[in-house]
Each structure stands twice: as C-alpha cells, then as structure tokens.
Amino acid sequence: MMENGSSFPAGAKEPAVIDERSWARLRWRCRRGMLENDIVLARYLDKTAGAIGEQELAALDQLLDMNDNELWDLLSGRTEPSDEKLQCLVRQLRSA
C-alpha cells in the first residue's frame, strides 16, 4: 500500500472500476496450470471484487501472460519483477 492509502502511486490516475467484460476476461485468464497460482490469484480477485483501475489491469495482463513457473516464482518471492510497473501489483498479490 502507498502512503495515500491506495495501491496506486501518488499522482497516478485514480483507479476506476473496469467494465464487466474486462473483469470476466481477467477472471478466466486467472485460471492457471498450477494450483498455487490459481489460489493466490483467486484470493486477489475476491479481495478486489472488480474494483481495479486501468493501470492495474495492464499490469495484471502482463503478469498473466507469463508462464506458470515464472509467475509462481514472482508470487512466492523467489524472484523480483524486473519491470517497475509490476512491483506494486506483485506486492499486493503476495499479501493476498
């Protein structure tokens, strides 16, 4: 969490709720080949309940394009995201 209490850096655009279709698409792409990833992503989705903004959605899309082992390495803290844009999201996922 950032100091301003949101998960977005100060100055970034306020998160807006994404449309239903993007949310549904996102939910389906959170179906993974490894149970570990399924569970962490499901916890995160339950917590956000659709209230995520454009930037977070873009970051998630980028994460979900990874293969399952790469993703699990990130979620379990074995590796760190090289892309700065992913750091905030990865932190949230780890605490989910």
Partner: peptide
Amino acid sequence: PTRSHTVA
C-alpha cells in the same frame, strides 16, 4: 496451451 495442467 502451455498453461495446461501438465505444467505442474
């Protein structure tokens, strides 16, 4: 395809 369960 590469996210099929065989990946585990």
